[in-house]
């Protein structure tokens, strides 16, 4: 379908003619660049990709992609994207959303698209703040966070986006951070390859209203201690020299242990297909634990049907069993009578 041979695509092919209008230094720039790069690497023809967004800083994203795009209304991108994907399953559909857009005003659509498991990709830019409206607490802001609408500190308890997605039945959950370009790219590749709804939480720095929210995770000096890089089948190790590990206690709670103090077999091994592991990883929060990064969960195939495939299979089956629809027969399907 593509006019350009897939190998001939480069990042530039996905750059639109619009001026990018995020604040200088915003984490969104890095994400945009990686997405454009990965789209080229994936060899998806520009005309077969659709970027759909809601409202918020991140939701400007589609304007900057030289693909088809729909900048919709607050929280509704998953609804719009569902219509696009169900009507045209062959399209590569990407939903760009933020913590307010997806988890607050659009919470309902977010959980339902995950439950249905459409084969789309959701990139949630989590900056723990409302940026576009200039700094109010969001559903991922930490309790006590002082913002313009919470001068004495937010009283809301934050969502863990990953835990919410897991609860909604997500078949693919990943977490990455704006500044880790390599890791971000690999998560985008994994998301694109996944059959079903891919949910990628991207920790994104809002330099203006919540600068440094993820500093410990992203700063060179601290990230080795603060990131737990998950890899399928690999032991959960972290620290500059992988000197720390995660061990599961007898009561199934995780603890941080010094590798030198334990047998290698005691270190937990990551398994993306294990729902209990995904549960642990999505709930591993707080300063005593590192932040799990990477693919928390990935399951597909049997037992994880893709919604739009079911829709079109049923149409196919109905045509097989009843023949293609005949409108005249339909009109006559009730009791009829002839008036002479």
């Amino acid at each position: 379908m593509s006019i350009a041979a897939s190998s001939a695509l480069s990042r530039k092919d996905f750059v639109s003619d619009q001026d990018v209008r995020w604040c200088p230094g915003c984490g969104d720039y890095a994400i945009l660049a990686q997405v454009q790069k990965v789209m080229a690497e994936l060899g998806i023809a520009r005309e077969n990709a659709v970027f759909v967004s809601g409202i918020g800083c991140s939701s400007r994203f589609p304007y900057y992609m030289n693909t088809y795009g729909f900048h919709s209304i607050h929280g509704r991108a998953p609804a719009l994207a569902s219509g696009i994907k169900v009507a045209r399953p062959e399209l590569s559909v990407w939903i760009i959303t933020g913590d307010g857009d997806a988890l607050s005003i659009g919470g309902n659509h977010f959980v339902h698209i995950l439950r249905r498991n459409l084969d789309v990709n959701i990139l949630l830019f989590n900056n723990e703040i409302y940026g576009l409206t200039k700094g109010q607490y969001s559903p991922t802001s930490k309790r006590g966070h002082k913002t313009k609408t919470s001068p004495m500190g937010s009283l809301d308890s934050p969502f863990s986006p990953a835990a919410l997605a897991l609860g909604a039945g997500a078949t693919f959950i990943a977490r990455t951070v704006d500044v880790e370009t390599q890791h971000l790219q690999s998560m985008l590749h994994r998301a694109a390859a996944h059959k079903g709804t891919s949910f990628v939480e991207i920790l994104q720095n809002c330099v203006v209203f919540n600068d440094g929210a993820f500093a410990d995770v992203s700063d060179r000096g601290t990230k080795a201690e603060r990131q737990l890089l998950l890899e399928q089948g690999k032991p959960m190790l972290f620290g500059r020299d992988s000197e720390w590990g995660i061990r599961l206690r007898a009561d199934a709670t995780p603890e941080v242990v010094a590798v030198k103090d334990v047998k290698p077999s005691e270190i937990a091994v990551h398994d993306e297909t294990n729902p209990f592991m995904a549960h642990l990883m999505s709930h591993m929060e707080g300063s005593q634990f590192p932040v799990p990064m990477g693919v928390l969960r990935a399951v597909e195939g049997e037992g994880y049907p893709v919604y739009e495939e079911g829709v079109h299979r049923q149409i196919h089956e109905a045509r097989e069993s009843k023949g293609p629809g005949d409108f005249d027969a339909l009109y006559r399907s009730g009791d009829t009578w002839q008036v002479e």
């Binding site: 609804a79 219509g83 309902n108 049923q314 629809g325």
Partner: peptide
């Protein structure tokens, strides 16, 4: 009416109903 190629999505709410229709 699936044999007519009609797609119906029973959405999670009214907003998703019209949203998916507009996307389609």
């Amino acid at each position: 009416m699936k044999e007519f190629g009609v797609i119906t999505v029973q959405a999670e709410d009214e907003i998703a109903g019209v949203g998916s229709a507009l996307g389609a």
